[in-house]
Amino acid sequence: MIEILMWLAVPYIVIGLVFSVTHPDDVRSLEKQVQTQLPAGADALSFGAATLLWPMMLITGPVEEHCDVG
């Protein structure tokens, strides 16, 4: 069962990485939001969040439309 989940996670992560690289504006807007809470690791955390949450970001659209990003 764990092996099946690991094999299913590989394409999910690869698609997430491709999404994060091709949508840098979404990653930057997430970074602006995270910067207030965690200034030191905001860039890595926002890239990881965009990689893991790519289905939600794909469905809902750009982050700027939903949040007040300065």
Rank of each mutant, 00 (worst) to 15 (best):
residue 1 M to A: 14
residue 1 M to W: 08
residue 1 M to Y: 14
residue 2 I to E: 10
residue 2 I to C: 06
residue 2 I to F: 06
residue 2 I to T: 11
residue 3 E to F: 14
residue 3 E to P: 06
residue 3 E to K: 09
residue 3 E to L: 15
residue 4 I to Y: 01
residue 4 I to N: 03
residue 4 I to H: 01
residue 4 I to M: 02
residue 5 L to R: 05
residue 5 L to D: 07
residue 5 L to Q: 01
residue 6 M to I: 13
residue 6 M to G: 10
residue 8 L to I: 00
residue 8 L to M: 14
residue 9 A to I: 01
residue 9 A to Y: 00
residue 10 V to M: 09
residue 11 P to N: 05
residue 12 Y to V: 04
residue 13 I to G: 09
residue 13 I to V: 15
residue 13 I to Q: 05
residue 14 V to D: 07
residue 15 I to E: 01
residue 15 I to S: 06
residue 15 I to D: 01
residue 16 G to C: 01
residue 16 G to I: 02
residue 16 G to H: 03
residue 16 G to N: 00
residue 16 G to M: 02
residue 17 L to C: 15
residue 18 V to D: 06
residue 19 F to G: 01
residue 19 F to M: 02
residue 19 F to N: 07
residue 20 S to A: 13
residue 20 S to L: 00
residue 20 S to T: 14
residue 21 V to T: 15
residue 21 V to I: 15
residue 21 V to D: 10
residue 22 T to W: 07
residue 22 T to M: 14
residue 22 T to D: 12
residue 23 H to M: 07
residue 24 P to Y: 03
residue 25 D to H: 07
residue 25 D to N: 07
residue 26 D to A: 02
residue 26 D to F: 02
residue 27 V to M: 08
residue 27 V to S: 05
residue 28 R to Q: 02
residue 28 R to K: 11
residue 29 S to N: 15
residue 29 S to E: 13
residue 30 L to H: 01
residue 30 L to K: 00
residue 30 L to V: 05
residue 31 E to T: 04
residue 32 K to H: 04
residue 32 K to Q: 13
residue 33 Q to L: 11
residue 35 Q to E: 13
residue 35 Q to N: 12
residue 36 T to I: 11
residue 36 T to M: 09
residue 37 Q to M: 12
residue 37 Q to E: 07
residue 38 L to A: 10
residue 39 P to T: 06
residue 40 A to V: 10
residue 40 A to Y: 11
residue 41 G to Y: 00
residue 41 G to H: 05
residue 42 A to Q: 04
residue 42 A to K: 06
residue 43 D to N: 02
residue 43 D to H: 04
residue 43 D to P: 01
residue 43 D to Q: 04
residue 43 D to S: 09
residue 44 A to S: 04
residue 44 A to V: 10
residue 44 A to P: 04
residue 45 L to W: 08
residue 45 L to M: 11
residue 45 L to Q: 02
residue 45 L to S: 02
residue 47 F to M: 08
residue 47 F to E: 07
residue 47 F to D: 04
residue 47 F to N: 10
residue 48 G to D: 03
residue 48 G to Y: 10
residue 49 A to Y: 13
residue 49 A to H: 12
residue 50 A to I: 01
residue 50 A to K: 00
residue 51 T to R: 03
residue 51 T to L: 14
residue 51 T to K: 05
residue 51 T to N: 04
residue 52 L to N: 03
residue 52 L to V: 09
residue 52 L to Q: 05
residue 52 L to K: 02
residue 52 L to H: 02
residue 53 L to I: 00
residue 54 W to D: 03
residue 54 W to I: 08
residue 54 W to S: 01
residue 55 P to A: 04
residue 55 P to M: 03
residue 55 P to Y: 05
residue 57 M to F: 10
residue 58 L to I: 08
residue 58 L to H: 04
residue 59 I to C: 12
residue 59 I to D: 04
residue 59 I to R: 12
residue 59 I to A: 15
residue 60 T to M: 11
residue 60 T to C: 14
residue 60 T to Q: 13
residue 61 G to C: 06
residue 63 V to Q: 04
residue 64 E to Q: 12
residue 64 E to A: 13
residue 64 E to W: 03
residue 65 E to V: 07
residue 65 E to F: 07
residue 65 E to M: 11
residue 66 H to Q: 14
residue 66 H to G: 09
residue 67 C to T: 13
residue 68 D to W: 13
residue 68 D to S: 10
residue 69 V to A: 06
residue 69 V to T: 11
residue 69 V to W: 05
residue 69 V to C: 08
residue 69 V to M: 13
residue 70 G to L: 08
residue 70 G to P: 09
